[in-house]
Amino acid sequence: MADDRTPTWEDVARVYGRKIYNFAYRLTGNPDDAADLVQEVLLRVRKGLSSYTPGSFDGWLWRITRNAFLDGVRKQKRRPTSPLPEDDRNVLATSPSPDEVLASVRLSEDIQSALLKLPLDFRECVVLCDVVGLTYEEIAEAIESPVGTVRSRIHRGRKMLRELLTWPV
């Protein structure tokens, strides 16, 4: 939000919902997990808005989003019967919406598959930068780490992706 007034959670859902969903989808590779994460984030936003003091709203929101994602990952680790998918081809077979059909082009599959093989720390930085479009400073605020760490993770994450992707450069 560019202005200083505190938004309502409906504002957040409308303006940021799609970004949060894409962040969640690219991190999990799963539309159901992505939808769950969006709901969880919006719930936390709704609870948190009462104590939110106007400032860097984006930093606040993405910190919530990232923490919700990490909490979800921890829960899944405690329930090994529902692991994160290794390949989004299986996911796309059960998701027939037009956008997901579009997402099933080969390149997208390869990139999504490679993203899921990155360590979480690197994956979240790459997704926040290249999918969500945050600056390094905003990412640093979201993951509560120095900008230097963000810079390093994005660089190393992209290098890993380059090695994982099979198409020629």
């Binding site: 959670w9 859902a13 290098k159």
Partner: peptide, 23 residues
């Protein structure tokens, strides 16, 4: 190489959020 990877990441389609998630 990184330029190619970055460009490829940015070609990922921006998916539509399921309607039921929005107020």
């Amino acid at each position: 190489q990184l330029k190619e990877v970055r460009a490829a990441l940015r070609t990922l389609p921006f998916l539509e959020i399921p309607e039921h998630l929005l107020p």
